[in-house]
Design a protein around this nucleic acid. Structure first.
Ligand code: ZN
Ligand code: ZN
Ligand code: ZN
Ligand code: ZN
Lengths: 236, 236
DNA sequence: TAATGAGGTCACGAGGTCAC
DNA sequence: GTGACCTCGTGACCTCATTA
């Protein structure tokens, strides 16, 4: 039985093409292969910084967070469609897409996956696979990515402005952390911007980034948002 | 009756989320779940090396004491706030927190818990649960941990300097071991440092680490300290 | 017996390396 | 700067000795 073999190849969606695993996997297994990189569409080598991605995008994101230098301004107004063939041409858009896809230093997970997680991974990968999407749907998802990027950064900035204890507070489990005494202007302004919140709700409800498997960092954003008093009374 | 089921899930504080037990518990039980890991806040899987902790911190500590290699120097001056998402980034601080939480090879216990022990566990877990702590109290506890770590190592060094029989001597019950002929400079200097001792007393009195269930090794430190002649006439 | 945690196992990904 | 490849720390799950 196929899923019985049970490693990351099995639990994630199967593609006809063969991906490159990090190590010497290619030759020594029948390797059912991984879904493609969420950023550029190249063959992925696993889940990096919380997102199914290729070695290139993984390394790129690593360098970004390590040396946090400013990118050259995008020549197309920040709307490049990142693909394998052009990913090297616009670092700014590539980075934005990394973030929008859910890449985050806070999303790294090490060690094995739990059985439950594996099953969830499999379901998610299948549900949101390219195969189940039309070209239009894919395009819409790409657009969502850009909006999502903006919202994520907004909320993160707001969070950082209101939390002295920096990033560790994002962590689950338990209550999403939000200091009672810290309802700053930043949060308030966000709370009062109805459009942005409707948008947020909409995206969180429909997008493929909701699952904590594919992007725990976004899940954390949701948790944080939920923890805000009076945050639109998010029911679920 | 709830507590009647009587295993470690029952006697410790119940959380709404589900933890991962070591084995295949997840599916086959209603498992009331454990308190979170005292080191990183992740779901715990039981009491390891004397401390309620997760599989990750358990394995980490095991590796630490097995291969006793030196850690890379902490980049934040040894003051990292260890959390689930960043626990992998600073082994030094993680180890410090393990020790400060009471983890010790001398705190291992095997086999079942007695009824009395279970009830004690339950009471302690409930008393010191996150639910009964404000965020400020938690922060204060974290600060205590760092101070505690320093004191523990100080006392241990002092102990080792005065005890030929190495570490096994920490074990209780019976008289805490202290060689009459070995009142070294190290001990003396400790004894004469009023601030440190007041601090010690204060922490031992107020902190959640006092119980021998959650951290027998710290209990041992107290016992050892008590056994020192003229050790501030510790009444309790 | 049943409960429980130490120790072992090995899939997994972060980070480093270096030809390009 | 990029990315294919490597090393190694990590942690979910397992077995097994130990105890009530
Ligand atoms: Zn890619
Ligand atoms: Zn661009
Ligand atoms: Zn932990
Ligand atoms: Zn540190």
């Amino acid at each position: 039985m196929f899923w019985g073999a049970a490693d990351v190849f099995d639990i994630l969606l199967v593609y006809p093409e063969c991906n490159t695993r990090q190590s010497t996997f290619i030759s020594d297994k029948k390797s059912p292969c991984l879904p493609c990189c969420r950023i550029c569409g190249d063959f992925s080598s696993g889940i990096h910084y919380g997102v199914v991605s290729c070695e290139g995008c993984k390394g790129f994101f690593r360098r970004c967070i390590a040396q946090k230098k400013v990118f050259a301004k995008c020549l197309k107004g920040g709307e490049c469609q990142i693909q394998k063939s052009n990913r090297g041409r616009c670092p700014e858009c590539r980075y934005k897409r990394c973030v929008a896809s859910g890449m985050s230093i806070h999303s790294v997970r090490v060690g094995r996956y739990s059985k439950r997680q594996k099953i969830k991974n499999q379901a998610d990968a299948e549900r949101f696979s390219d195969k189940n999407c039309t070209a239009d749907e894919k395009l819409a998802m790409d657009k969502n990515d850009i909006v999502l990027y903006n919202i994520i950064t907004n909320v993160m900035v707001a969070h950082q402005l209101t939390c002295q204890q920096s990033t560790h507070e994002w962590d689950l489990p338990g209550e999403a952390c939000f200091h009672d005494n810290a309802s700053s202007l930043a949060i308030t302004s966000l709370l009062n911007n109805d459009n942005e919140f409707d948008e947020l709700l909409d995206i969180f409800t429909t997008s493929c980034f909701l699952t904590d498997v594919l992007s725990p960092s976004v899940h954390n954003v949701v948790q944080f948002a939920k923890s805000l008093q009076g945050f639109k009374d998010l029911s679920q």
